[in-house]
Design a protein around this nucleic acid. Structure first.
Lengths: 106, 106
DNA sequence: TGCTTACGTAAGTATCTGCTTAAATAAGTG
DNA sequence: CACTTATTTAAGCAGATACTTACGTAAGCA
């Protein structure tokens, strides 16, 4: 999860991910969408690949990239777990508060 | 979302967040769980606060912190949206594939 | 084979970041 | 008031990182 988080923490990499979310694109096509040099994009693609967030497929001299949603699974689970646990705590606290009120009445 | 993402990208800050997820703790109590100095923890708490991931409440000389799950809402939505869109694309592709097969049969 | 196209890798740089120690602030306590 | 406790702020530093330019590599084509 650490790698995926670090990877999507950079805005440019999120932009790249969004680009290859529904289309398979070559490194060059991806780079043409941005104002940075191709090597910069290449380095970002490598980070995304290492994090399991994109897949790479070679076709002739081109390399085609596309998003791998499974790479985000662990992070998604962490967030949802965190969220649920926090709401659970809030609920318990509300119940306690309710009980206190009830106690005062008698 | 950017701030929240950057905030939870650091492992130490995720540890802190987990600590104050179900309990409200003081800066000192939080710091005592780690091997870093109090100022370091203080700086992390500030980042988390700026990102809306924790709330701060003063009580005497102490400052009490606790997780604010709403701070993660936007990121959670982004991830789920990304996930769903990607799966939707996969589904469309599978249907296309199915149609192709069907076409070959006739 | 040589040339071109499409990419990646290497090396360097400016900025960011997670930490440290030292000093400042803020609130209670004698 | 001086003193202690709890915590943040300031300044500085070593390492990470997002870029750059220059060079290397791999595949198709004359």
């Amino acid at each position: 999860m650490e790698a995926a988080l670090k990877a999507i923490a950079a805005p440019r990499r999120r932009q790249i991910l969004t680009l290859v979310r529904s289309d398979e694109l070559s490194a060059g096509e991806i780079a043409s969408h941005f104002d940075v040099t191709r090597p910069a994009v290449s380095q970002h693609l490598n980070v995304l690949k290492e994090a399991g967030l994109v897949s790479e497929r070679r076709n002739g001299t081109r390399r085609l990239y596309r998003a791998r949603p499974e790479g985000l699974a662990e992070l998604k689970a962490f967030l949802e777990g965190f969220w649920d646990e926090r709401l659970e705590t809030l609920k318990r606290e509300a119940e306690k508060e309710e009980q206190k009120k009830h106690g005062h009445k008698h």
